[in-house]
Amino acid sequence: MLYYIFKRVLMTIPVMVIVALFVFLMLRLSPGDPAAVIAGDYATAEDVARIREQLGLSEPIVVQFTKWLGQLAQGDLGTSIFSNKPVAELIAQRIEPTMLLALTTIIFSVLVAVPLGTLAAYRAGSWIDRVVMLFSVGGFSVPVFVLGYVLIYILSLNLKLLPVQGYRSPFTEGIGPFFAHITLPTLTLSVIFIALIARMTRASVIEVLEEDYVRTARAKGQSEFKVLMRHALRNAAVPIITVIGIGIALLIGGVVVTESVFNIPGLGRLVLDAVLARDYPIIQGLILFFSFIYIVLNLLIDLSYSLLDPRIRY
C-alpha cells in the first residue's frame, strides 16, 4: 500500500513534465511572433521587444524549456506580464475563495444528492423517482449564469435575504458574513452537481439492490432502512465517490462563470482576467496548477476505493 502510494507520487513527475511541455509549446507553436501575440494589436515595437526579453524568447527553444523547467522545479511559475507580480503569489491569493466555494458546494451537493438518489433508487419507477430524475435533467439543462441571476433576483433583490455579490473571508471577516455571501453561489453551483451525483447514486444503488447479498440481508429480517445503509450504499459507493472526486476537480478548475456572476475574487476570475489580458505566464501557471490538483485528486479517489472495498488492494 505504502509502496503503491510512493509509486503513484513518483509517477506524477513525468505526467507533470509532459503537461509542462504542452503548456510550453502552446505559446511557442502558435503562429506568428509570440511576443507580438501577447502584446496585442495596439502594442508598440518597444512593448514587443520588452515582452520578448521578459519571456526569454530569443534563446534556442531547448534552452528556454530547460530553464523554464528549472524554475518550475523551484516553485517559480514565472512573472505576470501586466502586474509584474510572481504568478505563484497571484494564484495563492486567489485560492481561498475558490477552495472554500468548492468545499461548501460539494458538501451541500453530497448531503442533498446521495439521500435523494438513494430514495429514487429504492422507489424506482414511483413518482418520487420521477420527480428526482426530472429535477436531475433540469439541473443539467439550466445554464449557471441564468440560474445565478434568477436566484439573485428572487433571494437578494426581492426577498432581501442575502447579499447580492461579493466574498467575505471566514478567517479575517468572520463566519457569519462568509456564509451570507457564499450561500447563493453555493446554491447555484450545487444544482448541477446534485443532478449529477443523484443520477449516479440512483443508478449505482439500483444495481446493488438487485444483488444477492441484499436479499440475504432481508432474509435476516433486517429493516429496509438498514438494508440500504449497511448493505447497499457502501457497495454502491465506488462510482459515487468517483463522480464526487471529478466534481471537486471541476469546481476548483472551472467556476469561471459563477465567480463572475457573483463577483468572487477566486481562481476562475484569475483565469478570465488572464485570458482577456493574454497574460501567458499566468495562464501557463494556472494550467500547471490545475493539472497538479487533478493528479492529486485522482490519487485520492483511487486510494479511497481500497478503503471502501476490501477486495481492492494495491
Partner: peptide, 25 residues
C-alpha cells in the same frame, strides 16, 4: 412481523455462496 419471523423462526440459505454475502463486511 415478517421481519421478526425471518431469522427467529425461519431462515434461508441460497444457491450462490459467492454472492450471497456482502463483499465489504
Amino acid at each position: 412481523k415478517i421481519r421478526r419471523m425471518r431469522g427467529e423462526k425461519m431462515a434461508m440459505i441460497f444457491q450462490e455462496p459467492m454472492t450471497a454475502l456482502n463483499p465489504v463486511a
